[in-house]
């Protein structure tokens, strides 16, 4: 839960007044809340913590960090992909 993972914003939409995005983490896509980064655009990289974008970051640093997560085999874990109890998180 402690680590925050960088991902790329691929789509932005409005859900009942809350700005939400689809964010791609090296192939794993998740629904992420953008309420705390109102100026993020499609194509930007952001650090995501428990489903929320918290800080922007440049592409190069983002890709380096993602590669490290993948290499350590902790990308899925940090993104909660194994938690099959909840339908929406496992995609």
């Amino acid at each position: 839960m402690c680590l925050a993972v960088p991902g790329k914003v691929v789509e932005i939409r409005d859900d009942r007044g809350t700005r939400m995005a689809t964010v791609d983490f090296s192939g794993i896509r998740k629904e992420i809340c953008l309420a705390y980064l109102p100026d993020v655009e499609v194509g930007d990289y952001t650090i995501v913590h428990v489903g929320f974008a918290i800080s922007k970051l440049d592409e190069e640093s983002a890709l380096e960090t993602l590669a490290m997560f993948k290499e350590l085999g902790i990308l899925e874990e940090e993104l909660g992909v194994e938690s099959t109890e909840v339908g929406g998180t496992a995609s």
Binding site: M1, G80, V86, G88, T89
Partner: peptide, 27 residues
């Protein structure tokens, strides 16, 4: 239930109006 984001817990509450949904907000 294990959730990835607190918003998942909100969604579970919306989908289960006749149950009490409690989220463990630590960190």
């Amino acid at each position: 239930r294990v959730v990835y984001s607190p918003l998942d817990a909100v969604r579970i509450a919306e989908e289960n109006p006749d149950r009490q949904v409690v989220f463990f907000a630590i960190g």
